[in-house]
Simulated scan of single mutants.
Amino acid sequence: MFASMTKGAKQMIEYLNKTVGDEGKTFETIDFSSNYTLETVLICAYGIEVKVFEEPDSKFVQMGKKLLQPKPLEAFFFYVSMLYPKITKLLKIRFSNQGTSEQVFEMIKAAFDYRDKNNLESKDFLGNLAPLRAVFGEKSVLALAAAFFVDGQATTGLAMGGILYDLAKNPEVQQKLREELNEYFEKDKGQLSYESIQEMPYLDACFKESLRMQPVLGFLTKVCTKTYTYTPPDESHPPIVIEKGTPILLPIHAIHNDPQYFDEPSKYIPERFMDKEMANTKYFMGFGNGPRACIGN
């Protein structure tokens, strides 16, 4: 999988050199990074090789864009469903564009059918899901495979686009990160290894700081599992009883940008996450929190 990601990264660099060149040009980081994550997900998860950077108008790119840019009405229904989940089932509200969802399902089903017909086995994501169809049914497995497409391409593309934007705005941080990368490039003799990427402390801090300032999700949705009484520590108002089954919204963006938890929150300071205590703070929820935290972490 790492080799496939590296191959996609090389194609991304070639594209960047052609479009931006030495003189430098302005480009949209979200579109750029989402193309890379799209290509990576297609080859690593589904075994579908598409040269996204060479075919910017392909159906796969259009699918990715529609997932990233929902229509206003779709976005409205999404937020309503967070507040009133029962309405979602009653009105059969969908979270994504129906046409795009069907395309993703068809793509994955075609990949399954091709492998079944040709008796092909693979160690990728689809290969691991294939035996589960007999246990959970094809529809459930297709839904899981489609969810991976959304999470792997859309949310990862947003996170990657965010850090590129932050690095462009903060050249001193970019230079410091570049120095760390060059150090590991030299250590790996010009080719970064998976292990080296996991080791880089400043790279990790830059990603966390970007996710702090602009989290992919502005809030988390939870459901209260047992009745709880919240008593304000400053006694500014009476205790609040939260009944079991009440939908709860955790405002991640507000918490991440609250000076009570992060000093100078409007400034991009990756160094804050180099501190051991801050690196493990419960107030950073870039990947959510608890047993249902994002596996993207």
Rank of each mutant, 00 (worst) to 15 (best):
V20Q: 02
K25A: 14
T26V: 15
F32K: 09
T37H: 00
L38H: 03
A45Q: 04
E55Q: 13
G64Y: 03
K65S: 04
L68C: 03
L73T: 12
L90T: 15
R94W: 01
R94E: 12
Q98S: 13
Q98D: 03
T100M: 11
S101N: 02
I108Q: 10
A110V: 05
Y114I: 11
R115W: 00
D116W: 03
K117N: 13
K117L: 14
N119S: 09
S122T: 15
D124A: 05
F125V: 00
N128R: 14
N128D: 06
L132Y: 13
E138I: 11
L142P: 07
L144A: 10
F148M: 15
Q153R: 13
A159I: 09
Y165K: 14
Y165H: 15
E172A: 12
L177I: 02
L181G: 06
E186V: 05
Q191M: 07
Y194V: 04
Q198V: 02
P201R: 05
L203W: 08
K208S: 04
R212H: 10
Q214M: 11
L220I: 10
T221F: 09
K222E: 11
H237I: 03
T246R: 04
I248K: 03
L250G: 04
L250E: 07
P259M: 10
Y261L: 03
F262I: 11
E264S: 15
E264R: 14
N289Q: 12
A293Y: 10
